[in-house]
Every structure is written in C-alpha cells, then in structure tokens.
Design a protein around this nucleic acid. Sequence first.
DNA 1: GCCAACGTTGGC
DNA 2: GCCAACGTTGGC
Length: 153
Amino acid sequence: MNYWLFKSEPDAFSIDDLKSMKGKKDHWDGIRNYQARNLMRDEIKKGDMGFFYHSSCQVPGIVGVVEVVKEAYPDHTAWDPESSYYDPKSSEENPRWVMVDVKYRQKYEQVITLEYLRTLDELDGMVLLKKGSRLSIQPVTESHWTLISSLSR
DNA sequence: GCCAACGTTGGC
DNA sequence: GCCAACGTTGGC
C-alpha cells in the first residue's frame, strides 16, 4: 500500500466538504499538473491512504485522512467550457487529465500545522517541506506516514 | 498583497 | 531544443 498527500484550498474544497458529500466521497478533480496527473494515472491505487492538506489558508497543514476508493479515470471537468478547469486540448476521445475518487476517513481534532511539521527532523526530505514545493499530489513515505499519524493522538 | 519558486508556452 | 516571458502556487 502507498501513501499520499492531497492538497486543497479549503475555500474551494475542504475536508468538511468531503465529509458532507454523499457517501463521504468525491472525485479529486481539477488537477492540471503533469507530475500530479502521472502519479494518479500510474501509481495511486485503490486502498492507498492519503493525508488531506489545507493550503493557501490561515493555518496550512494536515487536517485528516482519506482513502483512495477508485483509481484514475478521465477528468470530465476538462471537457466543460463552463468549468474553470476547462482544457480545450482534452477530449472524450483523448482525455488529457484524470482524477481518482477519495473517501473521508478521519478529521484530526487539531490541524497538524505546516509550521509544526517543519520542526521535526524526522521529516527531512518530505516533499511538502522542500523549498518551493508546490506539487498538489505528493508521495509520502511509510515512515513519514506513521510518524505524522502518531501525532494526532 | 507580496514575491520566490516553479511550470508552461511559444518564438526562434 | 533553448530559453524568455508569462501564469500559477502558496507561504508569509
């Protein structure tokens, strides 16, 4: 099993939004970055777990956990001219972008803040903490996953 | 709101 | 295929 980190701006889509969806699950649409797309297309498997990360907000950090419940399939928002994720170069015949489905698993009582994560020597090398890192879907190592998960207790 | 870092585009 | 210009991300 592999571990991931999914970034979202809570103003656009928060962990509470996910929790309130029917079945507590939703498709992770709107990814328009090739590196993140390739991770979804090639690496992210059903049953994988992910941290839900809130970015571009007052207190950026990890707010909870999701599970991947459906593997990559075409992102239909790319075909919708009304959508802000519209990409005329993507078609139903030849989809350029994909998404996966994730399901809410838990919300932490307290945000594990980016500020706090930066203080932990054990997280050296974590993609999230690298300077200039802005990948919206990131791999997380098992040891980092285990450590961060233990912080929520 | 600023701005550093990064990704993408397109002319050559 | 290079790289300047531009657009975006995201912490602060």
